[in-house]
Design a protein around this nucleic acid. Structure first.
Lengths: 148, 148
DNA sequence: TATTGTTATACTCTATAACTATA
DNA sequence: TATAGTTATAGAGTATAACAATA
């Protein structure tokens, strides 16, 4: 009976934990989207992800971008189309392997990256400032990242 | 010089932490959506959120659902429309305050909730099973949830 | 005037699957 | 046959703002 109560309490703890995770996740989405919206960069969150991962590189293939951003390949084509339409990235074929497309920042894209990336990091930092133990956070988040 | 190096290292730590958070967030989205897709319930993740928060209640107002799910009111109308179209929820006006709409599970919605909610929790639990220290997780996630 | 919820618009992202071109 | 990326389809969620009804 007492054991049953304990199990129920543990189940409730777990559900509470998952609700917190889901809400944290959702708030992160909203916060992330809001940062980009308020920045006036004209980027959506997925577009910014792509720009940020292309920054300080000589270009990446679509597969590499997919690996880093977790954006599905079908979706990625559309995101890159829009960034290309804004003149922020350009595409060219790989010389060795005809199947591969290299995506890279244009000069305008690089200027945007140089301006927006530090701002983005700074806004996140401000939000996280209250964090008590950075090392614990790092190691724990690594675990969470591995779970999903 | 050494101080500068340290600061740079700290900045890099922070960026790594944020990248992990962003990836954890994205993976959670994908995992969450996949659970519902594979369950055959026909629910999207936001729809499931609404069904789950209505479970074991006598109905909630749209504002209350918004508070719990963080789904914007404009979006919520559409989500509820789709759930109503499936016969899973119903709406009625509040007797006291004519502005308020009460949303509640239908019998079919409640059956879905009773069946899917435990499954959902169980799948999350399986995923989280590797977690080393539940208490640490709970307290840390609480912090993250408060940050965003 | 403020609040609750709906409607309208326009867009982005999403999954899925078929498809092209190349390896 | 397998891989890289595009295209096509259909739908869902999103922000935003204007709106109606009620308090």
């Amino acid at each position: 009976m007492a054991q049953n109560t304990t199990r129920k309490a543990q189940q409730q703890d777990f559900i509470t934990l998952m609700n917190e995770l889901a809400r944290a996740h959702h708030r992160f989405s909203l916060f992330d989207a809001e940062i980009h919206r308020l920045s006036g960069s004209g980027l959506t969150a997925p577009q910014a992800k792509v720009i940020f991962c292309l920054g300080n590189t000589d270009g990446l293939t679509c597969s590499e971008i997919t690996d880093q951003t977790l954006i599905t390949k079908g979706t990625l084509t559309g995101v890159i189309d829009r960034l290309e339409g804004k003149g922020l990235v350009e595409r060219w074929g790989d010389a060795d392997d005809g199947r591969i497309i290299i995506v890279a920042l244009t000069r305008a894209g690089d200027r945007l990256f140089q301006r927006e990336y530090p701002r983005y990091v700074e806004k996140l930092r401000t939000q996280v400032e209250g964090l008590s133990d950075r090392e614990q956070a790092t190691s724990y988040l690594g675990q969470i990242a591995d779970l999903f």
